[in-house]
Design a protein around this nucleic acid. Structure first.
Lengths: 222, 222
DNA sequence: ACAAAAGTGTTAACTTTACACCCATGT
DNA sequence: ACATGGGTGTAAAGTTAACACTTTTGT
């Protein structure tokens, strides 16, 4: 079996779904396409796998180029292989999810004049290729993961309020939760602690700011 | 970007982890290798992705050739890309899990003079390539899935006993469960029904045979 | 009659749900 | 002083966990 004599080799690209939470909204990082095909549409950060690299190494390069660090929580999601997913070539795509908290992001963003923009997951722009399907797939995976407390910690900055946390859960589970019960449950889990500070800027009574404790045990919520 | 001018294309193979449950043991289907490399070792059923096929189509071909049907529950698991995972060529591997109940299997096995053999997941033979890693990865995924009742239904034949079901759960969760509580929980979930028949062959009192109801709602156990 | 494995019920501890009023801030 | 959103407690219902003896079969 020699590659040069064989038609059955394919391109493989890596797609990254980088998520963060900001003001109780789940957001994803997209890039505007400035060339055809799909000029003016938005796509997931991506890169073709080279013959000397693993998928993981390729994923890390993308992260470095977009958010300036590959030192975040990531997880492989799915490999897409439809014949026509790219109009020019047969390209398989392996997608990853990555989670970064919004505090860390703000710093990195300033370093780059960015093609990149954050979009709330329910308010996406026109999406290039089959990336909408990829995003939906990744979002579903993330939602199932979000019932695990350790994942939550990767997404939330050091300071967050319980109403913000509750909002995310209500979006994920698509139902209203009782404020008292939500609060009781989370505080009793012992995963978070009061920072002593309060939120500001919104109308109404300011909310207490919490952080995740340094070491939390793997716990399943809901 | 033209493939013939570009070194950055790779082979992709599909690997299938086909699971069943027999007498309360979780088993996987492997093939003996009769050629080098790894002659005499066992490998997962596999096939190289062709340029005219999707991963899903390739997976279905493997299933037809091994168990005689592709009409079983499957799920994509992970794509492996280490540079040296195959000694001859750079080959990526996308693995799938497939679930079939042991009653259906017995029929299919008779049709084929088979290179294939079922191995209990805790008593595997010498495994070729990185397939041990692949199997471990797939088994972990399956274990997390097994807390969902719909998956369970794919794995279990029409008739099973509660002690068998309990044994699987004890293996998965790696702890002993109380027989009374297990039974109460499962029966109260309303997913299974008594067939009216009893098991035979073992010593001791025969166990009642149960089956999953036709339509069961998605329920999470444990 | 004995060995082996299956079947059964009750109580206490814990978890989840439902529910309404007061509090802190900005305008 | 009013509008906005945040914070708090209690009781009822439901779920889970702990626990030991009896039943059915084969030998």
């Amino acid at each position: 079996m020699n590659k040069m004599n064989n038609e059955n080799t394919v391109f493989v690209e890596v797609l990254t779904n980088i998520f963060t939470v900001e003001k109780g909204k789940l957001k994803i990082l997209l890039a505007r396409k400035n060339t055809e095909p799909y000029k003016g549409y938005w796509e997931l950060p991506n890169k073709i796998l080279s013959n000397e690299e693993t998928l993981e190494e390729t994923k890390e390069k993308i992260l470095e180029e977009t958010i300036g660090t590959s030192n975040i929580y990531t997880e492989q999601n799915y490999t897409f292989s439809k014949l026509d997913r790219n109009p020019n070539n047969r390209i398989l795509a392996t997608s990853y999810i990555g989670l970064i908290d919004s505090k860390t992001i703000e710093i990195k963003n300033k370093k780059n004049e960015n093609n990149w923009e954050w979009f709330t997951i329910n308010e996406l722009p026109k999406i290039a290729f089959d990336h909408k399907e990829v995003i939906e797939n990744a979002t579903e995976l993330l939602k199932t993961k979000l019932v695990s407390a350790n994942i939550l910690k990767k997404l939330f900055p050091s300071d967050f309020t319980l109403p913000e946390l509750q909002e995310i859960y209500e979006n994920i589970m698509n139902k209203k939760l009782d404020r008292r019960n939500f609060r009781k449950k989370f505080i009793n889990l012992g995963l978070i602690e009061d920072t002593g500070y309060k939120s500001e800027g919104r109308s109404g009574r300011p909310a207490k700011l919490y952080r995740f404790k340094e070491t939390i045990k793997e716990t399943y919520l809901f």
